[in-house]
Amino acid sequence: MKSFSGKVLFLDRSDINTDEIIPAKYLTEISKEALKPYLLEDLQLDGFTPEKDIKGKSIIITRANFGCGSSREHAPWALEVNNINMAIAESFARIFRRNMFNCGMMAVELPGQTIDHLFQVFSGKETFIETDLEKNVFILKADGLEKEAGFSISDFDRALVAAGGWVEYADAKY
C-alpha cells in the first residue's frame, strides 16, 4: 500500500485539467518514470513554479473538478512518479478519480466549506498531513496548528488502495 501522509501542495484553482497535469505531447512516452519532470508543467497559477513547488510534496489540496479533460491515465502516473499519491478536492472528474484508485492512489472529496477553511488556515504555510485510514481522518499540521478533517471512501475504493491498485486487486481475486 502506498503512503498517504506527507507535505501538502496547495493549488488554489478549480477545473485543473489533465492537460495541465501532464501535457499531451508527452503521451508518446512508454514509461511512467519518463513523465516525472513534466508534472504540472503547463499549469498557469499565480505564484506557482513547478520545479520549485512540487519537490518534497506528497499530497495535493485543490478546489472543484480536479482532473477534468482527457481521460489519460498519464495524469495519475505523473503524480505517482513524483511521490504524490493523494489529491484532496471539493470534487473530481469521474475518470480521473477512477484512474487514481485504479492505481492504488487516493482522490478524496471534502465539502467546499472544509476546503475553503483549509486554504484559509494552511495555504502558504508548510503543511503536513497524516492520514488515518482506519479512523477516516486527516490530521493537518503547520506551525503548531493542528486540525482534523473526516472523510469517507467506498469499500471498493478502500480495497483497491489496500491492494495497491486494480491490477493487484484483480490478480489476487479473479
Binding site: S71, R72, E73, I95, R98, N99, N102, C103, G165, W166, V167, A170, D171, Y174
Partner: peptide, 16 residues
C-alpha cells in the same frame, strides 16, 4: 478503457 483497466483485461480477462 484506461491503461490500468486494459492491463487487468490482458492479465485476468475481466473489467469493472
Amino acid at each position: 478503457v484506461g491503461t490500468t483497466d486494459l492491463e487487468v483485461g490482458i492479465l485476468k480477462g475481466v473489467c469493472a
